[in-house]
Design a protein around this nucleic acid. Structure first.
Lengths: 110, 110
DNA sequence: CTAAGATTTCAATTATTCTAAAAGTGTTGT
DNA sequence: ACAACACTTTTAGAATAATTGAAATCTTAG
């Protein structure tokens, strides 16, 4: 992953509202939610929700699909895994065992 | 992890400079770096670097240790793992197999 | 005590976030 | 097919917050 990919992701998640939206979409999984449902569920005005959804979409964290007159949003889980890999890349000068006891454990390839 | 913990982390990493600092600290591992080294390595004025280091420290992403008259900073890898767990918590309504082929694979407990 | 290193304070610039109004889209009724 | 409706997005403006560099402060080594 490039820095130009990772940075918009962190910018997108640095807002409490957008973090709530993303986590909600992660929770509902492949079913996703339409803009109005998200707006109602989190009590955010539709016009403002649209602004935040645009930011999340631009970062690639959520995908939007036209569904009749609605727009359905889904979380992009794969991108998040890539993000973790990017952060832990070249971890500890190539010596993962130096990272500490529980840092690179549990199958996380860092 | 609480939302109040995760949010400052994303805010901290939403700056290109701080992302560079954190990744550099991940790369050097437990050795860490002092403020002046970071300032020189990334070509950032010390006064500005201090500001960003404070933000990273406040988020818990890096730890600061007094070392003589220097201040040595190290990356907190454990916190990042908690962050991933927080994001993927309750993934896909408790049915990880719905998340897609490579989303919850490779031992990532989501 | 003197000098060097690191951080804090402060003001100016810049970017982000929000509400409200207007404009597109697609759908349903007659 | 035409018109009316529901949902979503876009635009514009003001308020709020983040970022930056210069000067000043504090702490430590010699």
């Amino acid at each position: 992953m490039e820095k130009n990919t990772a940075l918009p992701i962190f910018e997108a998640l640095s807002s409490g509202i957008r973090l709530d939206v993303f986590r909600l979409l992660v929770r509902v999984g492949p079913a996703g939610m339409v803009a109005g449902e998200l707006s109602a569920a989190l009590d955010i005005p539709p016009t403002n929700m649209s602004f935040h959804l645009k930011t999340l979409t631009h970062a690639g964290l959520v995908s939007a699909e036209q569904e009749g007159r609605f727009q359905r949003y889904r979380a992009n889980m794969a991108l998040m895994r890539e993000l973790v890999a990017y952060l832990t890349e070249e971890c500890c000068a190539g010596m993962p065992e130096l990272c500490g006891v529980d840092t690179c454990a549990d199958g996380l390839d860092c």
